[in-house]
């Protein structure tokens, strides 16, 4: 048998989903568009951000929305030295677990920092909003480090 040609080709498989948010996630995303962050209060009094649709303890629907702060504390993080194409930040950054002031659980987002050495667990961070907001999680462009003492 003759040697076969080496055949190689790029292709892309796309799933063009549009998802309904439901009232809870819709409230959160509407808040982001308007430059606010909403959580929801659970049956045990904890404020969950992003808001959960159902109580993690009782499974009851949750509706007691609470606006939380736009600064918070870095609970844990992981440095990404080589961002990939799909990442929001194209410079090295950290995936960060940030507990916003007034929230009782952390949320995950990107943290912009000059280097891994500049990042410390417990650091104070602040939301950096996107220039144009549309009601999506990327309305938070990223978190940034606040200068000053870690809390």
């Amino acid at each position: 048998m003759a040697a076969a040609e080496l055949l190689s080709q790029e292709f892309e498989l796309g799933f063009t989903y549009t998802r309904s948010t439901g009232p809870v996630v819709g409230k959160f995303l509407t808040g982001l568009r308007d430059g606010k962050v909403y959580g929801v209060r659970g049956s045990d009094g904890r404020v969950l951000v992003p808001p959960a649709e159902y109580d993690p303890v009782t499974a009851a629907p949750l509706t007691d929305f609470v606006e939380v702060g736009q600064e918070g504390r870095l609970l844990s993080w992981c440095w990404v030295s080589e961002p990939r194409e799909a990442h929001l930040l194209q410079q090295p950054f950290a995936w960060a677990m940030v507990q916003l002031d007034g929230a009782d659980v952390p949320m995950i987002h990107c943290l912009e920092a000059p280097s891994a050495e500049a990042v410390t667990t417990g650091a104070r961070v602040s939301i950096s909003w996107a220039d144009e907001r549309q009601g999506f999680i990327t309305d938070i462009r990223c978190f940034t480090l606040l200068q000053g003492a870690a809390s």
Binding site: F15, Y17, T18, R19, S20, T21, G26
Partner: peptide
């Protein structure tokens, strides 16, 4: 906001 576009490529 009631919907989000979330395509997967």
């Amino acid at each position: 906001v009631t919907v989000v576009k979330s395509p997967v490529y």
